[in-house]
Design a protein around this nucleic acid. Structure first.
Lengths: 199, 199
DNA sequence: GTCTATAGGCCGATAGAC
DNA sequence: GTCTATCGGCCTATAGAC
């Protein structure tokens, strides 16, 4: 838990503890009891502040979604060419072996089966795809990506490929037990995207 | 469960039921009781054939791994150019919204934390990356992928990108609730890989 | 707000009869 | 091989005192 959360109110500590457990173990693998212990809060406290596990998880997921979005925008909204910003996004520091706190939840049947829990996940991934598509389109307009060969590149498609490579990179890394696999996949994508002049 | 499994012995039915439950709910979300009910087998039967949940899961994972490998090889070992075979692999029919029965397990902390359970997952993804790298190398040698521009494309990196796009494509699809997102990511990758002559 | 007590049911496993 | 009985413990709440 963050240093701030340790001195915060019980509600705040419960949300932070839930965020971490959801990230590590998913919704199915996270019990109220485990949350309470991690948050240093009793059962009564948890059920006073939240309606139950689902309600607390919804609050935690919404916060993780907002945080992912803010972190991505810090990089994507920066300076430089479209390629440079996408490169910065792909190469930004990540706790690779932990995976994506939002994407991870898509493998959980009880998240995907519950509209309240799935909505923030869907919106976050959707926003990221859209934001990347804008930037890719800038690059295409400026002839950055294969413009020289006049290929049929589509901004929405490339944005989906970028997000998928990141999400799948986590899978490769966790399978092998090493962050290197994530980096390898990202380097492959960057090589394909690299401005023709750089090849 | 498959039609064959329904008429098979209890051991066989238990493995098949476990495979399906692991695919849908992961290791943490799958209980012996649920397996027994799905397999139509009692507790005594399950504990007679297997040492417990972990042992049964190991058998199920090994089988899913072998099956994934065989399915991939059927496409990758086919006819055609390197690009054509990779395209066939990416476009092959998949139950997209179910995700990957092997890759899915990487998000499960109890699978990743157990060498017996993780090994077949790691080996399968590793094999797939290697197999794809061989084919990509063929394509690079034949000037199929951007060879014309003499870029620094690496077969191992591109293979990782291909596997990551597939694994991440499942995440996008499940987040949005539609297989279309998977196809979009794949089309983006294929456009980047497309022989220069085709652009 | 937080505590303790209580609830009915499932968890993963073991024992022993048949 | 499969069955039923039993186990201690956790699951997700709910109730009511403080």
């Amino acid at each position: 838990m963050s240093a701030a959360a340790l001195n915060a109110g019980a509600s705040e500590r419960l949300i932070e503890a839930t965020r971490e457990l959801l990230w590590e173990r998913g919704y199915v693998g996270t019990s109220p009891k485990a949350i309470q212990q991690a948050a240093g809060a009793g059962q009564g406290s948890m059920y006073h502040h939240f309606d139950g596990k689902q309600d607390l998880a919804a609050a935690a997921i919404r916060r993780s979604a907002a945080e992912l979005r803010a972190a991505a925008e810090r990089v994507l909204g920066g300076e430089g060419s479209a390629y440079a910003r996408i490169e910065a996004y792909l190469l930004r520091e990540r706790d690779v072996l932990r995976g994506c706190p939002v994407g991870r939840l898509t493998m959980d049947p009880e998240v995907i089966g519950d509209d309240t829990l799935r909505a923030p996940v869907d919106e976050t991934i959707g926003w990221l795809r859209g934001r990347l598509a804008e930037i890719v389109q800038e690059g295409l307009d400026g002839g950055e990506f294969g413009g020289e060969s006049g290929g049929p590149l589509d901004a929405g498609e490339l944005a989906a490929t970028i997000v998928a490579t990141v999400q799948g990179g986590y899978v490769l890394a966790r399978a092998s037990g090493s962050p290197a696999a994530f980096d390898t996949a990202v380097r492959g994508l960057l090589a394909l995207l690299a401005p023709r002049t750089a090849r």
